[in-house]
Structures are given as C-alpha cells and as structure tokens.
C-alpha cells in the first residue's frame, strides 16, 4: 500500500469516529471527492462548519498519531488558514498529510 493509500485509510477511520458525533445530515462520506465545507463561488456543498471542521481535524490528528506517534502534529491552525487549498476535499487533505510526512 502506498503512503497516500495508507493515509487515506487512516482518514477514513477518523471519519467513522467523527460521524458518531454527528447527526445524519452532518456526516462525512468516505470518498476522496467528499467536499468538506461550502465555499463561495464553488459548486458542491460541504457539511462542516467552522466548529465541526475543528472537531474533524482533531480526530484526524489523533488517528494519525496512533500510527505515526504522539508527536505527529497536523498543524491544525495552519491547515485551517490554508483551507481553500488543503481542505477542499478529502483527497487534498490526504495530500497535505503526505506533504507533512515528507
């Protein structure tokens, strides 16, 4: 399994955990194309708001720490500040994690 595939699987596990805290219409789908939040000027609707986005990213970080150790840091604040680029959808998040690890 490539690193990208491995990280995608970790993020999908985090989605399962995150979805348990969400009502049906606030849950994320486990696909690479899943849009995380709605953006002005773009088609497609994401389910996360600013608060649930934080909850999701903290969950993702926890799952990554289980694999890469407690010191793994998702740099959440930086990620949120660059969300237009790195949090467009699940695949951009997977790529972000890949870049962090390299």
């Amino acid at each position: 399994m490539s690193n990208l595939e491995k990280n995608k699987a970790i993020i999908f596990s985090a989605i399962d955990e995150f979805n348990m805290s969400q009502e049906l219409d606030g849950r994320l789908e486990k696909t690479e194309q899943t849009i995380l939040f709605s953006r002005a000027g773009y088609t497609g609707k994401g389910v996360l708001d600013s608060l649930t986005l934080v909850y999701f990213l903290v969950t993702v970080e926890e799952f990554l720490q289980k694999i890469y150790g407690e010191n793994f840091n998702l740099k959440t604040q930086n990620l949120i500040e660059t969300k237009e680029k790195n949090l467009k959808d699940i695949s951009s998040l997977v790529q972000y994690v890949e870049n962090l690890l390299n």
């Binding site: 955990e17 348990m20 805290s21 608060l51 934080v54 909850y55 903290v58 969950t59 959440t76 604040q77 949120i80």
Partner: peptide, 19 residues
C-alpha cells in the same frame, strides 16, 4: 481534557467525554 480543542474551538473536552 483537550487543550488543543479548547484553543481551537472553546471545547474543553475530548469527544469521548461527550460520548
């Protein structure tokens, strides 16, 4: 207790506490 969640979202606890 999650300092990270507190600073990012003013949520003091990990989601398992809420569960």
């Amino acid at each position: 207790y999650s300092p990270k969640l507190w600073y990012l979202s003013k949520t003091p606890f990990h989601s398992s506490v809420f569960a």
